[in-house]
Design a protein around this nucleic acid. Sequence first.
DNA 1: GTCTATACCCAGATAGAC
DNA 2: GTCTATCTGGGTATAGAC
Lengths: 206, 206
Amino acid sequence: MNNKEKIFNVSIDLFSQYGFDGVSVRQIASEVGIKESSIYNHYSSKQAIMNSILDYYVEEMTNDEIPLDQASINLDKGFDFFYKAGCDAFLSKLKEDKMMKITRLFFIESYHNEEVKSFLKKSIIEGPIEGWMVLFNLMKSKKLIKDDCDVRQLSESFFYYGMFLLYEHFFINYPEDDDKFLEDFLTKTEKHARTIFDSVKIEGIK
Amino acid sequence: MNNKEKIFNVSIDLFSQYGFDGVSVRQIASEVGIKESSIYNHYSSKQAIMNSILDYYVEEMTNDEIPLDQASINLDKGFDFFYKAGCDAFLSKLKEDKMMKITRLFFIESYHNEEVKSFLKKSIIEGPIEGWMVLFNLMKSKKLIKDDCDVRQLSESFFYYGMFLLYEHFFINYPEDDDKFLEDFLTKTEKHARTIFDSVKIEGIK
DNA sequence: GTCTATACCCAGATAGAC
DNA sequence: GTCTATCTGGGTATAGAC
């Protein structure tokens, strides 16, 4: 691993622990094993390091589309199968050590970093919500859930539970139990999905 | 308002906007209209200002116990009435301008401030969850909800939705629509409570 | 590409006159 | 209680030798 890569990885480690403002260029340099002035041979500024981390994460996270026809097929195999398949796709991304760290970085920086904020809002909250609305509408057309239920409300009721688990982990419990969190996340949201589904499913559907 | 109070209030404003590390003593002094050295006649350090804000918030937030017998009476008037009463108690605290600001401050500082972190964990997450577990058990004993449902899971499914609305507001949308948020919070969580309740209620109960 | 040296700035905090 | 003046330390970043 060359020094540029080292700077990149060390910065992810430190920024995700202490936040962007809580880490100095000196600290990064010292952790890499070079002098701080050498950093500037690879990145033009501290902000430039942060930007490269942002770009990396956005790139990695936005190429995992779930094709709707596949979702439809999964849904025919029962709700539990369908849910597990969708959740696994998201978790496999998150499971990589680097992605967990950057996710925490995104959460903690979102309150004052406009770029992070708009990414979270668009790609991590609004995007999935719209995806779930499509799926609940699909369930309606398949006569799995009642016709009069509010699809938007249903999507939020379902999805925000998992979002809060993420917040809770990254702000309150991090970094203990990183692995345990990923395990529990699936089983907990699965039970929750069941609860939501049960509230609107048509009699006789499992 | 004397200068000590001014320092206190200005600090709440600035800390909640930019975070503790994002605000300098000079900024606070300038906003108050005095020199930074004068700050130290009222508070021994920047950290001391922060601590007094923490103490104030903890004091204000931890004297609003909901007596269980009252909750039981409310519950007999129907689930919707019961829920609205409980939620109003919490919202009336939050509605004060100062409390909204400090709540945001708590959220954004929680990732690296151990005191804030443990308060949030204990009093804002675990405490209410345990309260809701008591209430769902009460509903069980009143034969309102099914006997085989998981009360812990139910409490989380219910409560985490509202917690995420808080996170979303304070990190992503703040400070736009502060008032609108407080309005929407009640109606949104009410609908969500309905969804959760419907998934476990015994046939014939409203 | 890495180093030493340094510029420049702003932070938190203190001393002592008034 | 507030001021001016100042200390000390840490931050980002640059210049120029090797």
